[in-house]
């Protein structure tokens, strides 16, 4: 597969745009899933995952073919997701008034939905439950936990994607695990 990918990349480098389509097809599921888990919203996930591919295309000449292509792609996507999460926190999330809630802003919404009642959590489908637990993790831990458990990537690859020392990645996985365990305490 690496061979096929590199072949297509070389075609793209020569100006053949259509060769990029196969690359997108090969990696779309992985990238979309990461974005979906990070952002928790299908529309944003599609937008950001597509943007990640566009950035990859535009910057394809900076990709070092001796390294793993998926690592490079994941890096672009996770960076975009983190940016999006940071950007929307101050202006969109926190200050905006929620329509039809009589002046409630997002702060009060978060406070209200931050911890759902136990019965409601128990009724959740696995898929929603997983998303709910992930969304409650601090950003720092969320990224590593998604890469570790949803994408099932080795710690070394996560360290390459996030450009963090292996020790830091390990610590974050451990803290993320602790946070998950505490969140789910009484399952």
């Amino acid at each position: 597969m690496d061979e096929l990918v590199n072949k297509r990349i070389n075609q793209v480098l020569k100006g053949n745009q259509e060769a990029f389509e196969e690359i997108v097809t090969l990696f779309q599921q992985r990238l979309y899933q990461v974005c979906y888990r990070m952002l928790g919203n299908a529309q944003e996930a599609e937008d950001i995952a597509q943007e990640a591919f566009v950035r990859a295309y535009v910057n394809i000449h900076t990709y070092d073919q001796k390294r793993k292509f998926s690592t490079w792609l994941y890096r672009i996507a996770t960076n975009l997701c983190i940016d999006r999460i940071r950007k929307k926190k101050p202006d969109y999330y926190l200050d905006a008034t929620v329509p039809g809630t009589d002046g409630l802003n997002m702060y009060s919404q978060i406070a209200a939905t931050g911890d759902l009642p136990e019965e409601e959590i128990e009724r959740m489908e696995t898929q929603d439950r997983v998303q709910y637990e992930i969304s409650r993790l601090p950003d720092k831990y969320r990224t590593v936990i998604i890469l570790r458990y949803m994408e099932e990537l080795p710690l070394q690859e996560i360290s390459d994607i996030l450009e963090l020392p292996l020790g830091t990645v390990k610590t974050r996985v451990h803290r993320g695990r602790e946070a998950l365990r505490k969140q789910m305490g009484n399952m």
Partner: peptide, 18 residues
């Protein structure tokens, strides 16, 4: 908690993504 995360089925990209 680990098992819960791993039990989630993969998320599929929407039609027309490519």
């Amino acid at each position: 908690s680990e098992q819960l995360l791993q039990s989630a089925s993969p998320i599929r990209a929407p039609e027309g993504f490519v």
